[in-house]
Amino acid sequence: MTSPGTARRLWALGEPFHALTYFADECRSAAQAAGLTGFWSAYFALRAAPLGPVGPEVVTAAFYNFAPGFVARRVPAVWDAVTPEAALAARLAGVDAAAGRVLVPDWPAAEAAALAGIAAAAVDLPGRPLAAGNAGLPVPGEPHLALWQALTTLREHRGDGHNAALLQREISGVGAHVLAAAAGRTEKEWLMRARGWDAQAWDAAVEDLAGRGWLADGELTAEGTAIVAAVEADTDRLALGPWRELGDARCDRLAELLGPLRRAVLAAGLWPDRNPIGVPDPD
């Protein structure tokens, strides 16, 4: 039976290609050409576009780990600059342009897209708003864009499950970042800047987590380490369904195909070191 580790491995392999939409200059240029000014306006519009012209409350709920005020400074104003349909077109245009820098010659994009597409078509939708929004979009005709869309649906499915694992343990968005920083997965300063939390909110989360016995002097306790591991284990388990549909042999083949693509994205400098996404290196 396909193991939860498979879900983590394929996420780690595929996430850098998905993240072109955040980090590639071509993607920022496409967003600007559509009318979106500034990194965060583009981020919120392009990522939230599958949900329609939603307000800050919905974006805060679905994205989970951003400070509400940080979201409200961009949403719903982004919909005055661009429609969700135009944002969706811009994100595909940007990825299409950026892919020219990372696709390996003769790399079998059609095969990778077909495999990822089988998994993406099998995502379970209840309680998964971002996965559902992406699953409802048309599949692009170009294989590399079909692959990007499938990987995007799958990573949002995983993220929706991660949010459920946090919520079940009453871990807030800022609390999740405090735990991630204490675990050494990314930097506190970057997380605060990239997710909009101020020092007061961060310190309050530290105090709460320390009161629960999960932190001591800013470091994870044994119980805190166990909680972080449990959240990650639940995230992997909740992400597993689509990969079970694909099956072990085809999961292994997709991993084999994604490896060179991931390395090409890293070699092009399009995957910033210790970025706030917090993806581990694939095993």
Rank of each mutant, 00 (worst) to 15 (best):
L10C: 09
E15P: 09
P16M: 07
F17H: 09
H18F: 05
H18E: 00
T21E: 01
T21G: 11
F23V: 09
S29V: 10
L36Y: 06
F39A: 06
A48N: 13
P50T: 03
L51C: 04
P53A: 04
V59L: 01
A61Q: 06
F63N: 00
N65F: 08
G69T: 11
G69D: 15
F70G: 06
R74V: 11
R74N: 12
V78M: 06
W79C: 05
V82A: 10
E85G: 12
A87G: 14
A90D: 14
A93H: 02
A93N: 05
A97T: 07
G100F: 13
R101D: 15
V102Q: 07
V104M: 13
V104P: 09
P105D: 07
P108L: 09
A110N: 15
A119V: 13
A119D: 10
V123R: 00
N134A: 14
G136Y: 10
G136M: 13
P140G: 02
E142H: 14
H144A: 01
A146K: 00
A146N: 02
A146E: 07
T152E: 03
T152M: 03
T153M: 01
T153V: 09
T153A: 01
L154V: 13
H162I: 02
N163V: 15
A164P: 01
Q168G: 15
S172T: 11
G173Q: 00
G173L: 09
G175V: 06
A176V: 02
V178C: 01
L179E: 13
A182G: 09
A182D: 05
A182T: 10
R185D: 08
A194C: 10
D198L: 04
A201G: 07
A204M: 11
A210F: 08
W214R: 01
L215Y: 05
D217T: 03
E219A: 15
L220E: 10
E232P: 08
A233T: 13
A233C: 13
D236M: 12
L238M: 03
L246V: 14
L246K: 04
R250H: 12
C251I: 08
D252P: 03
R263E: 15
A264G: 07
G269I: 06
P272E: 09
P272A: 12
D273F: 14
P276V: 15
D283E: 11
